[in-house]
Each structure stands twice: as structure tokens, then as C-alpha cells.
Amino acid sequence: MKPLLATLALTTALTLPGLAMARPVTFTTTLNNYGGDGAYLALYVTDASGTYVGSLWMAGGKSKYYTHLTDWHRATGGDTGQVNGITGASVGAGRSLEITLDLADALFDAGYTLHIDAAVEDMRDSPNEVTVPLTASGAGATVPGRRYIASFKYDM
């Protein structure tokens, strides 16, 4: 993981004043056995008004398939600069993705929402696979996804 870059990715988007306060947050995404090839996952954050503010992680290296992460692609216009340095491999069925990022305290309990879009080759596109508000109290709570994600949680 590249926490520094991840922080930068978000900070440049958020332009928060007084950014000194940050802490490591671990996101754990476990996929179910959906019976297809590796899933592309986009983890990104919107603000209280639903406006895209930045990406946390992109699982899946081929940008030509990013159009299938429909909401993320609409929000960013497919700009790969949004996930530059925070891109990893796609996640196989039944596997888990665990990423740890240094995130600003100001992201929590401030109306921000974390989204995961998912897509699998020759199967359904699943934007908004997971939608969870980022709150300190929500940490550790497990939520299911709609189609491919068996469970998702963040710990800090």
C-alpha cells in the first residue's frame, strides 16, 4: 500500500485546511463465489451532496474496463489520474481485498459516504455495490454488498 500517495490523492481533492490529523484505516472487502473472473472494484468517497471528492483504491489494472464501474466512471469522466498510484490487481471470486490508508480525521462524521463500484467480465455491472457513511461509530460494522461483495468493513 502507498498510504502517502493515498493521502495525497484524497487531500488534493478535499483541500481540507488543517490536515495534520490523520490515522491508518483498514478497509476489508470480501467477495462471494459469484463464479466469474476477477472483479474490478473502485473505492471512492462522495460528500454530503453526493459530489465525488476522491478515490481511495482501484482494484483492476486495465483502464479500458473502467467504464463498467459506471458511477465512478461518470463521476470522474474515466480520469485515470484519480487512481494513479493507488491501483492494484483485480480481486478473484471468494477472495478478500484488505487495504490500509492514512486518512484525515476530518473525513469521518462529516457527511462523507464511501462507495464501491464493482464489475466482472461478461457479468452484471454493479455500481453502488456498497454505500456506507464514514463515521467513527460505524467502524468495525460489517455490511453486505449487492451482488459480488459478501461483506465490507472498515477498522481504525
Partner: peptide
């Protein structure tokens, strides 16, 4: 195309 060596990405209209 798979390795993004060609400019054949999808043109998506702005929302």
C-alpha cells in the same frame, strides 16, 4: 488494446 496502447477507449458523454 488491452494494454491501453491504442486510443480506442469509450467516448462517454458528460453527465
Amino acid at each position: 488494446s488491452t494494454f491501453d496502447l491504442l486510443p480506442d477507449g469509450g467516448a462517454i458523454p458528460a453527465m
